[in-house]
Design a binder for these strands. Structure first.
Length: 813
DNA sequence: CAGCTACGACTTTTT
DNA sequence: GTCGTAGCTG
């Protein structure tokens, strides 16, 4: 956007004339141009937080205070990471791939792939999502005869995840009672199972890479030296382990004080901390200030989003919380419309009121439908609202629900793909073994599991131990996988996925199913996703990292390197204008992640885009939690009742109540121009009609900003929509979640033609020699120049992808 | 072994 | 009320 004069690196450090810094307010400018040192930025809702973060990075680069390789910016969601990356590359003609910008888990993944040996993992380790983790837990429960009345698998999963979030291994958990002891024992068994199968769950990604840094001094020192500028987004939502992880990267702790070389900038808002239930610890903010001896705190209190009636409501509400760092949003905008409050007789009437107001907003006030949001505390509330919208023919879209990579048919396909990479992945084995049905029932699987347990091997290896027809069926399945692995050897990702879909029988199965058309469409979409993953996304952001230095030494220069800064260790420095990097590279062997492993990682770490269809002209429905970070011209908050909002489960203790209040604060601050609140006297909940008092939060809002609206008509549900549209015009029935954007996100351009005359002289079919792996046969070549990689089959080590710039391959005559 | 029925849960959720 | 799972029956 801004034409930037990047070449004049002699620009003064505090260049006020820099177009980068134009239009920043005083607070923002101060935050962007903070001198070296640790800082806490309290960024209120709508205060331009993302802009400050990205401009800060751009400014550091532009003024020569940082190189791309020296920057680590971490977020919670892929969406936030993507946005940061996109904005940054719009600001500066810099190759953002050289920077470590990503989610906590994405960056952990990078670390672990690059240092998999030091971390004790196979390079191609697979990542379990929550579904996978739960089925792994269930499997283990069965195997050990765990009483699932006393220890429901869900609870064990929660326990394990909770321990890891606190940074605790089984040995670290304080055992207070017999139940805890049992759980810890189970935790231990679970760990062993994961290690055996070469899989890690989300918590393990964090914990394992934390331990890697903690236990490998030279590695830690290396990264500490490298990342001179660490920036953390949504700091109030970090859990204990994430904070500990950051500390490892920032420096060493001595007597409760951090000794650091670079600077850490934490950006957050304690008033928007709404994830305590999943381990977020607002206290990390205070700890950060103390342990890092933070001298600078900046508050961004200028709000650019809302009219003052809305903002005053938010300020007034949140002032009822104690234990705040203290912040008051202000705006230069006028009061705007009052906040409208509606009391309905029942939930249906509430929904109909919303629909009617929305029609008027669109018809009379020219609001766009996608700029109107209906927020609710719990998902169950959406049904009535959806019905009302549908009946009125108003297009809507519900956020949440299943994402693309979580759909059953996709999970099945992924299970087959994972088995190609790792036959010992029992979670995937279990998912695929009898789907599509091939006569392998629960009984057979039980026999197999017993055999595997007594032989101490994977399910795949145990099939030969199962006798009879059952054994034959199992053998056929394993053989099928092996044939598939054979067939796809050296093929590109698209062909691999296509082969799996066909050979697994998945396509055939869904072709014969009545409702299978959508599923087949999704499976086709998976092929497209694989294709664009390779051609468009360059193997995905999280998978990308160039050579890592295990010993803190500068690495051997790669032959064709240009634009490498010799004063910096050659970690992840990206060649300007080069093709996307080849993926994670093991420095000792030159081994890279295969496109398939990279894709599977991508699928686990990024379950799919939720806002793919956001552009539609449709009213947005979502939970308050899901609305965080978004903004709308008009916002409706329904179900403002005691027991619902604040939720009954959170009302008992003050901590829970304060979190509910923060949740309400988040909801209010989503609105730009109009805010509508409603509550209902009665509501269907869990199949029962319940009576509710109006929420206490109403009493905490400034009376002068509110306008109470009474029902136009008395009685129950007598309201009739009067306008022309009438019935079912929309046909938008809950199209939940999904990848949707078939034409946008995954439009795959023609595959770029292979560059001619490869300098390495390798081609498929010839024999090569590798120092560590010995002699092997080249199966495929991908990429060019520094990014060229070869797939080589070594008789003793299996099939590897090797970066030709790193791996020393000699051609065997 | 697969399909069907009954029963229980049920706040929020990203990686 | 509705979804998902567990257990039973054909």
């Amino acid at each position: 956007m801004f034409p930037l004069d990047l070449l004049s690196s002699s620009a003064p450090v505090a260049a006020p004339a820099s177009p980068l810094l134009a239009d920043l307010n005083e607070e923002q400018l101060a935050a962007v141009t903070l001198p070296a040192g640790h800082a806490l930025i309290l960024a209120g809702a709508g205060s331009g937080k993302t802009r400050v973060l990205t401009t800060r990075i751009a400014w550091l680069l532009q003024t020569g205070q940082a190189t791309p390789a020296g920057i680590l910016a971490v977020t919670f969601t892929n969406k936030a990471a993507k946005e940061m990356t996109a904005r940054l590359s719009a600001m500066l003609p810099v190759n953002v791939r050289g920077m470590w910008i990503g989610t906590f888990h994405g960056l952990c993944n990078r670390l672990l792939r690059a240092h998999h040996q030091a971390a004790g993992l196979p390079q191609a380790f697979q990542i379990l999502d929550m579904q996978d983790q739960l089925s792994a837990v269930k499997r283990l429960c069965k195997q050990h005869g765990v009483d699932d009345e006393r220890f429901p698998p869900k609870q064990l999963q929660y326990f394990i995840a909770g321990c890891k979030e606190e940074g605790q291994r089984p040995g670290d958990v304080a055992v207070k009672d017999p139940d805890t002891r049992k759980k810890v024992e189970f935790y231990q068994l679970y760990e062993e199972q994961c290690q055996r199968e070469g899989v890690v769950d989300f918590g393990e990604l964090m914990l394992r890479s934390f331990e890697l840094l903690r236990d490998q001094p030279h590695l830690r020192a290396h990264y500490q030296r490298r990342f001179q500028h660490i920036l953390v987004d949504e700091f109030q939502d970090t859990n204990r382990l994430q904070y500990a992880w950051l500390k490892q990267l920032a420096g060493d702790e001595v007597g409760g004080q951090m000794r650091t070389q670079g600077s850490v900038i934490a950006v957050g808002d304690d008033d928007q901390s709404i994830y305590a239930f999943r381990g977020a610890r607002v206290g990390n903010m205070a700890d950060f200030v103390r342990e890092f001896d933070v001298q600078r705190q900046i508050k961004l209190e200028q709000n650019y989003r809302s009219f003052s009636n809305i903002l005053d409501s938010a300020n007034a509400l949140i002032s009822h919380n104690s234990r705040r760092l203290g912040k008051n949003l202000r705006t230069t905008q006028g009061p705007g419309e009052p906040v409208r409050v509606y009391e309905a007789h029942n939930d249906l009437a509430e929904a109909q009121w919303m629909v009617e107001e929305i029609r008027q907003l669109v018809k009379n006030d020219g609001f766009e439908r996608q700029q109107i949001a209906i927020l609710y505390r719990s998902n169950a509330q959406s049904r009535v609202i959806e019905t009302a919208l549908f009946n009125a023919g108003v297009a809507y879209r519900v956020y949440g629900g299943l994402r693309f990579f979580e759909r059953a048919e996709i999970k099945h396909a992924l299970a087959y793909l994972r088995l190609l990479e790792n036959p010992h992945d029992n979670t995937s084995f279990m998912r695929a073994v009898n789907f599509p049905p091939r006569g392998i029932g629960a009984r057979t699987v039980e026999v197999l599991q017993d055999a595997a347990r007594s032989a101490g091997c994977s399910l795949s290896d145990a099939v030969t131990a199962v006798p009879g027809k059952a054994g034959a069926n199992l053998g056929a399945f394993v053989a099928k996988i092996e044939v598939l692995r054979e067939q796809t050897q050296g093929k590109n990702l698209r062909l691999i996925i296509e082969a799996v879909l066909e050979e697994s029988g998945l396509l055939e199965h869904y072709r014969n199913e009545k409702e299978g058309a959508d599923r087949i469409e999704n499976l086709q979409e998976l092929v497209n996703a694989g294709e664009s993953f390779v051609t468009q996304e360059g193997f995905g952001r999280d998978a990308v990292a160039l050579p890592l230095d295990e010993h803190g030494q500068a690495l051997r220069q790669s032959p064709v390197s240009q634009g490498i800064d010799p004063t910096q260790p050659m970690l992840d420095q990206v060649l300007p204008g080069s093709q996307p990097a080849a993926g994670i590279i093991d420095i000792d062997t030159g081994e890279t992640l295969s496109p398939l492993v990279a894709f599977l990682t991508h699928a686990a770490l990024e379950a799919g885009d939720n806002q793919a269809q956001a552009g539609q002209d449709a009213v947005q429905l979502m939970t308050v939690h899901a609305s965080k970070g978004l903004e709308f011209d008009a916002v409706f908050i329904g179900g403002m009742e005691e027991g619902l909002f604040p939720h009954e489960n959170a009302m008992s203790d003050s901590g829970g109540l304060e979190e509910e209040r923060r949740l309400m604060y988040v909801a209010i601050t989503r609105a730009r121009k109009r805010l509508y609140l409603s509550h209902s006297q009665t509501r269907m909940l869990h199949g029962q009609t319940r009576f509710h008092m109006k929420s206490r939060f109403f009493d905490e809002l400034p009376e002068e900003a509110l306008k109470w609206i009474t029902p136009k008509q008395q009685g129950f549900g007598t309201f009739t929509p009067q306008s022309s549209g009438g019935y079912g015009g929309g046909g938008y029935g809950g199209s939940r979640g999904g990848f949707g954007a078939k034409t946008e996100t995954f439009a795959s351009p023609p595959v770029p033609p292979q560059k001619a005359a490869p300098s390495h002289g390798l081609r498929a079919g010839i024999a090569v020699f590798h120092n560590k792996f010995g002699e092997g046969k080249v199966l495929a070549i991908e990429g060019t120049g520094d990014d060229a990689r070869a797939q080589v089959n070594f008789p003793r080590h299996g099939t590897k992808w090797l970066a030709l710039a790193i791996a020393k391959l000699t051609i065997v005559d």
